[in-house]
Each structure stands twice: as structure tokens, then as C-alpha cells.
């Protein structure tokens, strides 16, 4: 469970709902008579500016953490080739021939080694999502026909990692999965 995201959302949601409820209650009480503004669209400039500043700070903090910049200047020690097709993942330590795709039965990577997944699709769009042993989503990229997406990741904990398809790809989408081991 990604608690931090859920908690962040809940805090923001509760704050904004409280503001709304409070404002609503002030309009119900009888002791004030039309102290509101004649034109509600006036004097909102400061609100916009504050909001803009908050959003800019949030953006500048989060953008450098985007997956495109992760491990960009390092040399991966292992590459796993992935070809997704309806409805399974072909994973191999070697390059996969699209005409006769064959994968390795077991994929193993070492803990703390930098792995590069080279992900493509042989038919429709698929998702390539890596779930840790506790079934928490930790990394993903898309498998798109005609393109190879390179996803780099360093697995800290040993265990069995699962791969689920996260882009709707047809009637057996929900059972399209694979796994690999981190030693």
C-alpha cells in the first residue's frame, strides 16, 4: 500500500471539504446580512498567485524524481529483454526474435544490481508493471509495438517479483502475468 500518497490525498481532501462546509455554515447563520461581495469574480488575483507558487514548488520538487532520470548516468550490469503479447510476457536474458519468440523459463537478477528491462510488444499495447513480493507496484513502463522502452531499476529486497499487465489488452488481460526472482 502506498500510504504516503493516500495520506497526502486524504489530508488535502479533508482540508478542502472542511473549508467548504465551514463556508456553507456561515451562509446559514442568520446574524449576517449580505456582507458578501457584489461581484464574486473580483479580487481573486492573490489566490491565483499563491496557488501558482505552491504548484511551481510541487512541480520543481517532483519533476527531477521522474523515472526518465533514474540511473541515467550508470551502466546497467544486466539487461532483460521483454516481449509482451496477448496474453503473456516473454522474458529472456538474450534478445528475442519476434518471428520465433522464445524466452527463458526462469529469470534471476541479483539484489542491488542495476537491471535494464528492454520492453516491447509483439501485438497490442501492454503494460509492464513490476510488483514487489508484497504486491506493491514499484515500477512500470508501457510495452508498445514498434518501440522499445528501457526501464532501469535496482531491486533492494530479494524475493519473488511479479509482473502484471497494466494496459487493457483484451479479454484475458487480467490473467496476463509473469515473475522473476531477485537473489
Amino acid at each position: 500500500m502506498h500510504y504516503s500518497i493516500l495520506v497526502l490525498f486524504l489530508i488535502l481532501a479533508v482540508i478542502s471539504i472542511s473549508v467548504f462546509v465551514y463556508v456553507f455554515l456561515t451562509s446559514k447563520s442568520n446574524d449576517n446580512q449580505s456582507t458578501g461581495m457584489a461581484n464574486a469574480l473580483q479580487k481573486r488575483f492573490w489566490f491565483i498567485l499563491i496557488l501558482l507558487v505552491i504548484l511551481c514548488i510541487f512541480a520543481s520538487v517532483t519533476i527531477p524524481k521522474s523515472p526518465y532520470y533514474q540511473f541515467a548516468d550508470k551502466q546497467p550490469s544486466k539487461v532483460i529483454h521483454v516481449a509482451a503479447q496477448q496474453f503473456n510476457f516473454i522474458m529472456s536474458n538474450n534478445a528475442i526474435d519476434p518471428k520465433s519468440p522464445v524466452g527463458d523459463a526462469y529469470i534471476t537478477v541479483d539484489a542491488n544490481e542495476l537491471v535494464e528491462f528492454r520492453v516491447t510488444s509483439l501485438d497490442v499495447n501492454h503494460g509492464f508493471a513490476i510488483y514487489d513480493p508484497a504486491f506493491k507496484l514499484i515500477a512500470q513502463t508501457q510495452a508498445m509495438p514498434g518501440y522499445i522502452n528501457r526501464l532501469r531499476y535496482q531491486f533492494k529486497e530479494p524475493g519473488l517479483y511479479h509482473i502484471l499487465c497494466l494496459e487493457y489488452c483484451g479479454m484475458a488481460h487480467q490473467v496476463m502475468r509473469s515473475y522473476f526472482t531477485v537473489k
Partner: peptide, 9 residues
């Protein structure tokens, strides 16, 4: 083109 992926890294 898949042959280009052989033995990478």
C-alpha cells in the same frame, strides 16, 4: 531488427 538487441551490455 531484433538482432541488434543480441549481447547488449
Amino acid at each position: 531488427g531484433w538482432q541488434e538487441e543480441v549481447n547488449i551490455y
